[in-house]
């Protein structure tokens, strides 16, 4: 199971890198969103998948699953949600002002 998810993470990262390398702002934002998902999955795999019971006192199992990665992912998802939302709004505002979403044309200072 871990191997499968790791391969999935790899595929997601490949997709994200492909999107990030393009010049269109929207693709870059989607790329960063996909990358964040890949890394959340990776965090989960790093904690080990389905190792034992629910980590609660009173559960009658020998092994308990590691709850920490879940907590980390939850926090990271909230952050990635907020950041992606901000980026989308920023991209839209930039498009309104500059009339382009091509990064080559989005040079703020001319004499670089």
């Amino acid at each position: 199971m871990e191997t499968l998810i790791t391969i999935l993470v790899g595929v997601l990262v490949a997709v994200a890198v492909y999107l990030l390398l393009s010049r269109s702002v929207i693709r870059i934002i989607l790329g960063s969103a996909v990358l964040s998902h890949a890394i959340h999955l990776l965090l989960m795999v790093m904690g080990g998948l389905k190792k034992g019971g629910v980590p609660l006192i009173g559960e009658e199992t020998e092994n308990f699953a590691d709850a920490l990665p879940q907590a980390l992912i939850l926090t990271a998802i909230v952050i990635s949600f907020a950041v992606t939302a901000f980026l989308l709004v920023l991209a839209y505002r930039t498009y309104q002002e500059a009339g382009s979403d091509d990064l080559q044309e989005l040079r703020g200072f001319k004499n670089e």
Binding site: S36, L43, A98
Partner: peptide, 29 residues
């Protein structure tokens, strides 16, 4: 206009590096 054009790069590069940070944390954990 200039501000938005420059800041979109700042934001994008920092978001990307944040995910790398998370990646490092995942590996380390």
């Amino acid at each position: 206009k200039v501000q938005l054009m420059e800041s979109i790069k700042y934001v994008a590069i920092n978001v990307l590096s944040s995910w790398f940070f998370l990646l490092g944390i995942a590996y380390l954990y």
